[in-house]
Design a protein around this nucleic acid. Structure first.
Length: 363
DNA sequence: AACTCGTGGAA
DNA sequence: TTTCCAAGAGT
């Protein structure tokens, strides 16, 4: 543990938050909260799951869309899983969508449609880990749970000059956060920490001069804030290649199939294709294609970067008559429905490379 | 503990 | 162009 004389007071952070809180669609701001507005645990949960490793900008339209379509946890629990996957398409980390659905069903079937009333109960639900359980408990119930996300890790690593590199420093930082978390205004405190990390104590070029905790920050006072938190080195990103086949019918329908529930892009929809491996060479006879045809190479390859590898797809296109049957496990998605399919971004790119405009939503 | 698991924007 | 990263969870 890092020794320290002075701990930063929650009051200073909360004063700053009262003046500078971000206004977000899912947030009950400090003024509303003081006026007695009670957060809806469903909305807090929905936003927190969407925000896992995902930017506020990316989440906003998805949050609004989900809330409009499924206003309550009971609505979401009753929704077809396929519709939830379609609505999540493009947001990434698709196991979150499966767990979201499973969690909603559990809340309804095992908890009478109400979310568990504390962090420990929330933690037992699918898709809710240490961070999300604490965040929901703090924000929705004002429970003084130790909320530790990437923002908190960065802020506290700087305040206390934590030399242990992440992720090993997590336990140490959690203990610090538990000590700092006030019993009053726990929800505002949690959100204040995240706002501080997102707007002042940023990864690069932190605005220390504007920070309400600057005088307590060991790293800032030493002029080395940006060098915290310490991090373990990352492995470089390997390369993989593959082929994707965009089969289009004369009426514009596109041949699709569903990926297995588990693993990469689990449960999402894709165009048929090869395996993705390093050293892949496209079969000139297209033995891995879903149908026999005169496959034409698209002008450009599709490059897509996943978290742990970079994929280059060779795109092939062929046109088929309307009476050609879809192979086992495949279906012809009508032209008007392609844009609404549960297509991850990489698959939209693949289809666009062969059929420009085919995945664009129209009104 | 170390991997797997998306995406798009910023620098 | 490349790297980094954004309110992590599951295994």
């Amino acid at each position: 543990m890092i020794p320290h004389e002075a701990t930063p007071p929650a009051a200073a952070l909360l004063e700053w938050y009262d003046r500078h809180a971000r206004r977000l669609p899912w947030r009950i701001g400090p003024r509303e909260r003081a006026a007695g507005v009670v957060p809806d645990p469903y909305r807090v949960w929905l936003s927190e799951v969407m925000l896992q490793q995902t930017t506020v900008t990316a989440v906003k339209p998805y949050y609004e869309g989900f809330l409009e379509r499924w206003p309550s946890v009971a609505d979401l629990a009753a929704a077809p899983a396929e519709e939830v996957m379609k609505a999540w398409a493009g947001l990434g980390y698709y196991s979150r969508a499966r767990n979201l659905k499973a969690c909603a069903e559990t809340v309804v079937s095992a908890h009478g449609g109400r979310f568990p009333a504390d962090a420990a109960g929330l933690r037992a639900l699918p898709g809710i880990g240490d961070y999300t359980a604490a965040a929901i408990a703090a924000i929705a119930y004002d429970e003084p749970a130790a909320v530790v996300d990437g923002n908190v890790e960065r802020v506290l690593a700087r305040i206390f000059r934590v030399e242990t590199p992440l992720p090993a420093a997590k336990k140490e930082i959690r203990a610090l956060q538990a000590k700092l978390t006030p019993t009053a205004r726990a929800g505002d405190y949690a959100q204040a920490m995240m706002d501080l990390g997102a707007t002042i104590c940023t990864p690069k070029k932190p605005a220390c001069v504007l920070c309400p905790w600057q005088e307590w920050c060991a790293a800032s006072k030493a002029g080395v804030a940006e060098s915290y938190p310490r991090k373990a080195g990352k492995a470089d990103r390997p390369e993989r290649q593959g082929a994707a086949y965009v089969a289009v019918r004369t009426d514009g329908a596109v041949l699709l199939r569903r990926r297995p529930d588990k693993g990469l892009l689990g449960g999402m929809t894709e165009v048929p294709g090869s395996v993705w491996v390093d050293g892949f060479r496209a079969d000139p006879r297209h033995g891995d294609a879903p149908l026999k045809a005169d496959w034409q190479a698209a002008n450009a390859n599709v490059v897509h970067v996943f978290t742990h590898f970079r994929l280059t797809l060779s795109i092939y296109r062929a046109t088929f008559d309307r009476n050609v049957a879809a192979p086992e496990g495949h279906w012809w998605s009508p032209q008007a429905e392609v844009a609404g399919e549960a297509l991850p971004s990489v698959m939209k790119k693949a289809i666009e490379a062969a059929l420009p405009g085919a995945t664009r939503k129209r009104k």
